[in-house]
Computed example of a mutant assay.
Amino acid sequence: MAPVFTVNSVQWAAWMAAFLWPFVRMLALVSTAPIFGESWVPRRTKVAIAALLAVVLGPTLGPMPDTPVVSAGGVWILVQQVLIGGAMGLVMRMVFAAVMAAGEYIGLQMGLSFASFFDPMGGGSTMVVARLLNMLAMLIFLAVDGHLLLVAALVQSFHILPVADAPLAAQGWMVLALAGGQIFSTGLMLSLPLVTALLTLNLAMGILNRASPQFSIFAVGFPLTLLAGIGMLQLLMPQLGAFLAPRFSGGLDTLARFAQLLRP
């Protein structure tokens, strides 16, 4: 007679906790991180990726708390995992936000502020130049295996900050706020060469207009600025990968520091 496989309620609750709590953190990161969390990725695909990661990596994450899932403590742990995973995805999203900011600065100087369209991911209008740089940043992120390094950082976060019902420390959220402040400085550093060149061109045309009033600055200035901006963008593109690779590495380092400072 074949042996009977029985499962009691305690074992079932332990299995459910070992899957559910890591799954929630992974799903929160997948929903907010670049590449995985884009609007063109179906929701079912995001859930499937998080579930696959939880099934594969769950047995390697160590023991989970004895807190029942269906309890006040279990709900508190779920909320913590959502906050941790969402914040980790937001840290990497800030690197791409800096690229978008650079595109906004460049498009404004090129006179393309009117050339915008609705961005479903950001929920607002985005300049064409900003969208172009963002797509190039995503391709570079995939080329340097950033998506795999992001998954590795997620797994490492479970060893640095294991699932527990203890309150999170406030220092980690300060790291998140400081990382948000880097959006403007990084975007300005990326766009500074092109913005400086276009400002110099506008200054030269302004001086020419004062020296020769019959010179129509409005008829010549816009196409000249646009052509100069396109030429500068062509020179900027080959340097984009060398500029963004250290920023991606810095974002991954910020993830580790964020998880370490959240430990109570």
Rank of each mutant, 00 (worst) to 15 (best):
L78P: 06
M127Q: 15
T45N: 10
A153E: 11
A98D: 02
S116C: 10
A143P: 01
V99R: 01
G58W: 08
G103Y: 02
A143D: 08
S39E: 10
F114C: 07
P68I: 00
D165C: 06
R43G: 15
G85C: 11
E104D: 14
M92H: 07
L142F: 13
E38M: 13
S71Y: 09
F158M: 08
F117G: 04
K46N: 05
I140L: 15
I84A: 04
V91L: 15
F114I: 13
G107H: 05
A98L: 04
M100I: 15
L112K: 13
M135H: 12
A50T: 13
I140V: 14
Q81S: 08
P120Y: 03
L142D: 10
T45F: 14
M121E: 15
V99G: 01
M64C: 06
V82Y: 04
L53V: 07
M121R: 11
A169P: 03
I49A: 15
L53A: 09
P63R: 01
G124W: 06
A48F: 14
L161A: 07
I77L: 01
V70M: 15
V129P: 01
L57V: 08
Q81W: 07
G123Q: 13
V91N: 01
L57Q: 03
P167S: 02
L52V: 14
P162F: 00
V91Q: 04
G107M: 07
A72Q: 12
V151D: 06
A166L: 10
E104M: 10
V41M: 07
F158S: 05
V129C: 03
L83D: 00
R43E: 13
L148D: 08
V95I: 11
G86M: 12
L168K: 03
V128Y: 13
T126K: 11
L112V: 14
G86F: 12
V79T: 11
W40N: 11
L136G: 03
Q109N: 13
T67W: 00
F158H: 11
I77Y: 00
L78M: 14
G111H: 05
A143C: 04
L61N: 03
M110D: 10
V95R: 00
Q156R: 07
A166H: 07
P162G: 01
A72S: 14
R43D: 14
A97R: 08
A50N: 12
G62A: 06
A130T: 04
K46E: 05
A51F: 05
Q80F: 02
A87L: 10
A143Y: 05
P42N: 13
V163K: 04
V75E: 08
L150D: 02
L132I: 14
Q81M: 09
L142W: 12
G58N: 09
Q81L: 05
T45D: 09
L52R: 04
V56D: 06
N134P: 05
A101N: 12
P59C: 08
V55G: 09
L53R: 03
M100Y: 10
V99S: 02
V91M: 11
G89M: 08
V99Y: 03
I49C: 14
